Simulated assay, not measured.
Amino acid sequence: MIGIVVSGHINFASGVKSAVTAIAGEQAQMKFVDFVETMSTDDLEADLRAAAAEVNSGEGVLFLTDIPGGSPSNRATAIMMDTPLVEVIGGANLPMIVNAAFERDDVELAELVEIVLEIGHACIKDMRKEFEAAMTPAAEEFDDEGL
C-alpha cells in the first residue's frame, strides 16, 4: 500500500484528518502534519521525513499539501528530490485526499498521482453553472418519422 502524508499550514492537516476519518474511517499508513507558527521550516521537514518513513512500506509515499509553493509543499519537494518513490501534489483538496486513501491499493505511485489529479480537477465545480444546467430542460430531439 502506498503511504500518504498530508501537510499544510496551521491546522489544515489535522482538520482534513477529522474529515477523512469521518468519511473513510481510520487509515493505516497515513499521517497528517500541521505546519504551525511555532515550527521552523527545518522542524517541518524533519516531521515530514519522519512521517514519510513511518508510512512507507516500500511502495512509495505520496505527499498531499495545501498550497503549491508553500513551505509544506517546498519541504516535501526537497524530500522527493533525495528520496526514491516519493511524489508531491500541491493544492490538494478533500476529495483528492479521501480518494487517495481509497485508491492507493494495487496501483503504482505514478498511477495514484494521475488518479488523484483527475479527481481534483473533476471535483472543482461552479455550483451556479451546475444548478443552471440541471434546471435547463434538454432540447427535445426531433422525430422525423412520418415526414
Rank of each mutant, 00 (worst) to 15 (best):
M1T: 14
M1G: 15
I2M: 01
V5C: 06
S7L: 03
G8S: 04
I10S: 14
N11A: 14
F12N: 01
G15I: 02
S18A: 11
A19C: 09
V20Y: 01
T21S: 08
I23T: 09
A24H: 00
Q29K: 09
M30A: 07
M30G: 03
M30W: 01
K31R: 14
D34Q: 08
F35V: 06
V36L: 15
E37N: 13
E37D: 15
S40E: 10
S40H: 12
D43F: 07
D43S: 11
E45W: 08
A46T: 15
A46N: 11
L48T: 05
A50V: 15
A51C: 12
A53M: 08
E54F: 05
S57Y: 10
S57L: 14
G58L: 03
E59F: 10
V61G: 04
T65C: 08
I67Y: 01
I67T: 06
P68W: 09
S71C: 00
S71F: 00
P72C: 03
N74Y: 06
N74R: 06
R75E: 01
I79S: 01
M80S: 02
M80D: 00
M81V: 09
M81T: 05
T83W: 07
T83G: 06
P84R: 09
V86E: 00
V86C: 03
E87L: 09
E87N: 11
V88Q: 00
G90T: 04
G91S: 07
G91N: 09
A92M: 04
L94G: 05
P95T: 06
M96V: 10
M96N: 08
N99M: 15
R104Y: 10
A110S: 13
A110K: 12
E111Y: 07
L112I: 01
V113K: 02
V113H: 02
V113P: 03
V116S: 05
V116F: 04
L117K: 09
L117T: 10
E118H: 11
I119S: 01
H121S: 15
I124Q: 11
K129N: 14
E130C: 15
E130Q: 15
E132M: 14
M135D: 13
E140S: 15
E141V: 15
E141C: 09
E141W: 13
F142C: 12
F142K: 09
D144K: 08
E145V: 15
E145Q: 10
E145Y: 13
E145N: 12
